[in-house]
């Protein structure tokens, strides 16, 4: 990837992180940890990968993205807002009464959201359905879905994987955010889903493993997914939960809670400093 491209993506990812922290703080509730761990992926998908049109969110030939780990809506909303689907200022309306920015993605109220999700394990099935529709209608659009590593404890995830391989859905790319933590703690201790790569391979997926915070690796894996034929692709990305905010990093306690005023100030100061450095100010 060209260095200037990479720099602009890193700047955008930092802005997405700022959006996550601000929106969750204003909501007084939400899920910052898993939103922050996937900030680079949200950014790359919405700014480089997806064939979409913010002016026409319902364009029928668009690529689809399903946030199977729907609780990380703050990350998705921040990416959508910066991509132009709705005003960035609206992010602070997250979870407010009467707001279109519902706590979990709502396809009927949020422009750019392709599927209502929130109940874990269901988004990947819907994404497989969209990919199946693309095959039946002989359309070129691709479908992407992002899952949590705790989410894959849901049996339905594996039902969907079976179906995706059975119907040779090479237009489907699933991404597993392997930040290693779920609400009750370390995923390996709560209910180990490991070995994730072996499981996905045995279910018939082509699997790529990457560092979730490295845009070169993200780009490379997604480019490979385009070339894989006859089977779906899975990208398992090793990430840091809470990435970018020092006190949230690798801390399960920040899976689903908002900052208090003092924490908010620290988080914003850190992210603004990182942004200033990236922008060379």
């Amino acid at each position: 990837m060209h260095q200037t491209d990479k720099k602009s993506l890193e700047i955008l990812a930092c802005k997405v992180r700022l959006g996550i922290v601000e929106s969750v703080h204003s909501a007084r509730a939400g899920h910052p940890g898993g939103s922050l761990s996937a900030a680079e992926m949200f950014t790359y998908l919405y700014f480089k990968e997806l064939n979409i049109d913010p002016k026409n969110p319902q364009w029928e030939d668009r690529d689809r993205f399903v946030l199977s780990k729907g609780h990380t809506a703050p990350g998705l909303y921040a990416a959508l807002a910066h991509r132009g689907f709705f005003p960035v200022e609206d992010l602070t309306q997250l979870r407010h009464l009467g707001s279109y920015l519902q706590g979990h993605p709502n396809m009927r109220t949020v422009p750019g959201v392709d599927m209502s999700t929130g109940s874990l394990g269901q988004g990947i099935s819907a994404a497989a359905g969209m990919a199946l529709a693309g095959k039946y209608q002989k359309k070129d659009f691709r479908v992407y879905t992002l899952l949590g590593d705790g989410e894959i404890q849901e049996g339905q995830v594996w039902e969907a994987c079976m179906l995706a391989a059975h119907y040779k859905l090479d237009n489907l790319c699933i991404i597993v955010d392997n930040n290693g933590l779920q609400i009750d703690g370390n995923i390996a201790k709560v209910m180990s889903p490991y070995p994730i790569v072996d499981k996905l391979q045995s279910f018939g997926f082509h699997v790529e493993t990457i560092d979730a915070h490295d845009f070169d690796q993200i780009e490379n894996a997604l480019n490979i997914a385009h070339t894989v034929k006859g089977k779906p692709t899975a990208i398992v990305m090793k990430s840091v939960k809470g990435k970018g905010v020092s006190f949230m990093e690798n801390n399960a306690g920040w899976h689903g809670k908002a900052t208090n005023e003092a924490e908010f100030e620290i988080a914003m100061t850190e992210l603004k400093a990182a942004l200033a450095e990236l922008e060379g100010k």
């Binding site: 029928e60 689809r64 399903v66 396809m107 392709d114 599927m115 269901q122 988004g123 099935s125 819907a126 994404a127 497989a128 359905g129 969209m130 990919a131 199946l132 529709a133 693309g134 209608q137 339905q156 969907a160 179906l163």
Partner: peptide
């Protein structure tokens, strides 16, 4: 849920 995905298109 696969049906939901099909219907969404």
């Amino acid at each position: 849920c696969v049906a939901a995905g099909l219907a969404s298109t």
